[in-house]
């Protein structure tokens, strides 16, 4: 009886937990990319444009962090709702813009 109740309480495949961890891993990857951007500016000397692009990268990282945080909070529900299209787009656009900033720094 209690076993049954417990099973109804949590997903036996731990799907929400795995998804939460996937978000965490992705946030970590984003952090590494942002740190590399900061390192690029520190190494090449702080020009005005370099600092600007680096600040933009940190903003994008913050944006990603907010999306991930919201989603991870939503995933604590027993039957989490599907990720919103807006959330998916925000995460992808942050990644994309990070690549554009990187290209601007490299060239």
């Amino acid at each position: 009886m209690t076993d049954r109740a417990a099973e109804q309480l949590r997903d036996p495949g731990l799907q929400p937990e795995r998804t939460r961890l996937a978000w965490r891993r992705t946030t970590l990857s984003c952090t590494v990319a942002a740190l590399l951007a900061a390192r690029a500016v520190l190494h090449e000397g702080a020009t005005a444009s370099g600092v600007l692009v680096c600040a933009l990268c940190l903003l994008l990282w913050l944006g990603f962090l907010v999306v991930a945080h919201r989603r991870m909070a939503a995933l604590t529900a027993r039957r989490p709702r599907t990720l919103t299209v807006r959330g998916a787009w925000t995460a992808a656009v942050c990644t994309l813009a990070l690549a554009v900033c990187a290209a601007a720094m490299v060239v």
Partner: peptide
């Protein structure tokens, strides 16, 4: 993100 990191 890994590809972007690779670019950096």
């Amino acid at each position: 993100l890994a590809l972007i990191g690779g670019g950096f």
